[in-house]
Amino acid sequence: MALELAEAEKGKTETVEMNVIEAINRAMDDEMLHDDTVLILGEDVGKDGGIFRVTDGLMDKYGKERVIDTPLAESGIAGTAIGLAVNGMRPIAEFQFSGFSYQAFHQFESHAARMRKRTQGGITLPLVMRMPYGAGVRALEHHSESRETYWIHTPGLKCVIPSSPRKAYWLLRASVRDPDPVMWMEPKYLYRRGKEEFEVGPDIGIDPLPGALIEQEGDDVTVVSYGASFQVAAKACETLEEEKGISVELIDIPVLSPYDSETVNKSVRKTGRCVVFHEAHRTLGMGAEIAARITEEEETLFRLEAPVVRVTAPDIIVPLLTREMAYLPDQGRLVEAVEKVMDYGS
């Protein structure tokens, strides 16, 4: 749609059916219409529309000044995004893969995360660092990791990972509006896997970033997951309900940092059991934090009827594509783990 026409129809909302790529594209599109300080920068995001086509069409619509093909320099992308945010813009910076965000690590750690503190609230950085993450798409070395722990471990950064098209749309828009820097990781495994229907519109009301989301209520066991793994977990839960008669409370934690343990712990107090499921490595993965928060809270700890179990990828370098699916935790492993905690002590 031409920009003038779109401007004129800003107030309208519509129901769409989209996959994750289309949803993220639409979220940026609507946010750019809604707020003209929002801009996109990154490698190949303009003319090429992004190597996964996530920014497709946006340069044609908003021009080269707002959808910017940068030189090949991630520290430059992150550092100038910080400067742009300091001086009144709301940048959405794309890192082609999370594996190539480390070239900018010091900009995230030393500056994005600390500017608020270092100016005593005088300068804040409303910016989003987008990066695809995760295995399962037959990619090369460095293209398949799930290293959200780096960002979760850094005070001053938020970390958000959507698990469906609808959530991608709403959460990305909330992230752009968030007053703090958001490390936004996209489950590329889900990019084109399945569509969802939801409402969109440039001026539609957007809630701030949420806490943990109880996606399905249940009594026997709490299963916590996020991102691409969440979809696998949801399927496993269906199997558990239908074939084993186990009632699962399924929780999605799209906002990994700050982590809403209140919601999760409350659920665990109800079910007495918890299994965490993610494709990040075991050691210091999100599961470690979830388990720790459960055990450090007596009222939750003493309700446990089984140890908290983590189903994760192992602590090894992600294998190349032929072995990556065996490396990734799958439905079967979650089903086994849930059965095990159900049988615990009996």
Partner: peptide, 21 residues
Amino acid sequence: SMFEHTVAERDPYLERQRKEL
């Protein structure tokens, strides 16, 4: 073999992960 060569020697916890998987 996915468990080979990440480090020279697997520690017991990594070995446990290998066995589980």
